[in-house]
Computed example of a mutant assay.
Amino acid sequence: MTATAAPLASLLADWGEWLPDLAGGLWTSVRLGAASLALGLPLGLLAAIGLTSGGRGARIALTTLVELARGVPVLVLIYLAYFGLPRAGITLEAFAAATVAIGLSVAGYSSETFRAGLLSVGRGQRDAAAALGLTPAKQYRLVIVPQAIRIVLPPLVGLAVQVVQLTALAFTIGLPELLGRAYNLGSITTEYLGVLLLATVLYLAVLVPLSQLAALLARRAAP
C-alpha cells in the first residue's frame, strides 16, 4: 500500500465506524428541518394573506411581526425559546424549542415569498372567482393560493436548503443533530478533521439534491 493510500484507507475505515452515529444526527437534522418548515410555511402563508387583504391595523401588526422574525438572528430566537420561555412558565425540550425558533424565522422569510406569489395571481382570476359567487375564503383556498404556491415553489425549496443548514445551530442547546454528534465524536476521538469531513459529506447528501431540485423548478417556472 502506498504512503498516500494508507491514510485514505484509515480515514475510510474510521468513517465506516462513525457513520451510524452521524447518520442518526443527520436524521435528527432532517426531522428538525421538516418540523420547522411544517410550522413556518403555514404561518408565513397566513401572514402573507393578512398582508395582502387585511385592514390597515392588521397589516401594521403583521409587518412588525414579520420584520422581527426576519431581523432577529435565529440563534437568538433559539436561546429565547429554550432559555427565555421557562422564565414565563413555558418549558420546551431542545427539539421543540429549535423547531419554534427556526419555524418563526421560516414564517418571516416565507411570508414575503408567499406575498409576492399572491400578488402575481392575475386580477382576472380573482374577478372570475368572485363572479362564481365564491366567498373570499374560498377564493383564496380554491383559486388564489394554489396558483401562488406553484409560482413560489422554487424559492420555497431554496428556503428548505437554508433551513437544513440552520438546524446546525440547535447544537448550541444540546440537541444531538448532525453537528452536535460530530463535535461530540470529535471530542472523544480527537479526530475533528475526519469527523467534520464526514459530517460535511452527509450534509451535502441532503443539500445538493435539494439545491438541484430548486434549480430545476426555477427553470421550469421561467417563461
Rank of each mutant, 00 (worst) to 15 (best):
F114D: 00
A94N: 01
F83D: 10
Q165N: 10
G122W: 12
A215P: 08
L197W: 11
G89Y: 09
V66C: 03
V206W: 11
P154N: 06
F95R: 09
D21S: 14
T99D: 10
T113Y: 13
L132G: 04
L77R: 14
V195R: 09
A47E: 10
V152Q: 00
A205R: 09
G71K: 03
L11P: 06
A58N: 06
Q147W: 07
L197V: 11
A6Q: 13
A182Q: 04
L75A: 13
L75W: 15
R56Q: 14
N184D: 13
E112H: 11
L22F: 07
I102F: 00
L68C: 08
I173R: 00
A131S: 11
V164N: 05
Q125P: 10
Q165T: 11
P155D: 08
V121P: 07
P86I: 04
P136L: 04
G16W: 15
S111W: 00
G174V: 00
V76C: 12
V195C: 02
P176D: 00
Q165I: 06
P7L: 12
A182F: 05
L216T: 15
A38W: 04
F114K: 00
L169R: 03
L39H: 10
Q139E: 14
L12Y: 15
P176A: 01
L104W: 00
A182P: 04
L193Q: 13
R70P: 04
L153Y: 08
A58C: 06
L153K: 02
G50L: 00
L62Y: 10
A131N: 06
R181W: 05
L41E: 09
G24W: 06
V106M: 03
R87H: 15
S187A: 15
D127A: 10
G54F: 03
L210W: 12
S110F: 01
R126E: 12
I149K: 01
V206H: 09
A96W: 12
A3S: 14
P155M: 08
P209N: 02
R150D: 13
T113L: 09
T2W: 14
A34N: 08
A221K: 15
A160D: 11
G158A: 11
L77F: 15
Y79S: 06
I173K: 01
L210F: 10
Y82N: 05
L77T: 08
D21C: 12
F83C: 07
I60F: 13
A96K: 08
A69V: 03
L198Y: 08
A116T: 03
I102V: 01
A170F: 00
S120H: 13
A38E: 02
T172R: 04
I78F: 14
R150P: 08
L179P: 04
V121N: 08
W18C: 01
I149L: 10
Y203R: 09
V164D: 04
V74L: 05
T28S: 07
W18M: 06
G33P: 12
V163W: 01
D21Q: 14
F83I: 06
S187K: 15
P155L: 02
A81T: 13
P42K: 03
A48K: 02
G133I: 01
A98R: 04
G124F: 14
A116G: 09
T91W: 12
L92S: 00
G117Q: 09
A222Y: 09
V157H: 07
E177N: 03
F83M: 10
Q147T: 07
S10P: 05
G124Q: 14
L43H: 08
M1F: 14
V106P: 06
A88R: 14
